[in-house]
């Protein structure tokens, strides 16, 4: 129990070296477009992300990868990885997901599928790698989904802090307020047989953000 709890903390800590600190998940683009300017705006956006992307896509992919890794189903992980990658329409999101996922796998050494990635047979997307690493660390499927969910929210809130949209107390308030949504998002991921997402407005803004000359975040 303690091992699992500590493993969840480790995997969802911003200290974990996977490069996620450079992502704003569209928040920079939305802030520039004038769509987000207050803590309430951010909280509403994150609630929507958790329901329409993090739960059904990231948590679901991490949980399925976790299950496949537990069963030694390498083909299943490879298939899931390819499907997840194909579902991301924003180029910089795809590239960052692969970069972070691959680095995460490297960090959790001796992971069984690492050779697959080295040989280019798998992309190593972030949530898929996350699920595989959590399985290796003895973290449950639910714990895995919770870590994905929390990591997403904490990353977005951190980006909003650096962009000056919110202040430090507001950041903690948002995280606190979203706890039920994070839990729901994780449960959605655990109970899902499919990986899907629906956030076209955010994706269109992120596509435009890719081509901006001056920006703080990858996307």
């Amino acid at each position: 129990m303690a091992d699992e709890l500590l493993g969840i903390m480790q995997m969802s800590d911003s200290l974990f070296p996977a490069g996620m600190f450079a992502m704003s998940n569209g928040i920079e683009a939305m802030h520039r477009a004038g769509d987000i300017s207050t803590a309430a705006d951010l909280e509403t956006l994150l609630r929507s992300y958790l329901a329409h992307q993090t739960g059904p896509s990231d948590c679901a992919a991490a949980v399925r990868a976790h299950r496949c890794a537990g069963e030694g189903d390498i083909g299943g992980i490879r298939d899931l990885d390819a499907r997840y990658l194909a579902s991301k329409s924003v180029r910089e999101i795809r590239e960052a997901s692969v970069r972070s996922g691959t680095q995460m796998l490297r960090c959790i050494t001796e992971i069984l599928h690492d050779e697959e990635i080295r040989n280019g047979r798998m992309s190593g997307t972030y949530p898929v790698s996350f699920g595989v690493c959590c399985q290796a660390l003895g973290i449950s499927a639910h714990g895995t989904a919770m870590a994905v969910s929390y990591g997403f929210v904490a990353g977005c809130v951190g980006a909003a802090l650096r962009l000056g949209i919110i202040q430090h107390m507001e950041a903690q308030g948002i995280i606190h307020n979203l706890k039920p949504d994070m839990e729901r998002s994780a449960l959605d991921g655990c109970g899902s047989d499919t990986v899907w997402q629906f956030c076209p407005q955010a994706e269109i803004l992120q596509m435009a953000h890719e081509n901006q000359d001056s920006k703080m975040f990858i996307t």
Binding site: L15, F16, P17, A18, G19, F21, A22, M23, S24, R99, S100, T102, Q103, A159, R162, L163, K215, M216, F217, I218
Partner: peptide, 21 residues
Amino acid sequence: GLATGGCPHTAVREDPSMNLA
């Protein structure tokens, strides 16, 4: 060129994963 989310020091010290990739 790498965009570093406002944390260039993190990108070369605490979490150099982007640069390594």
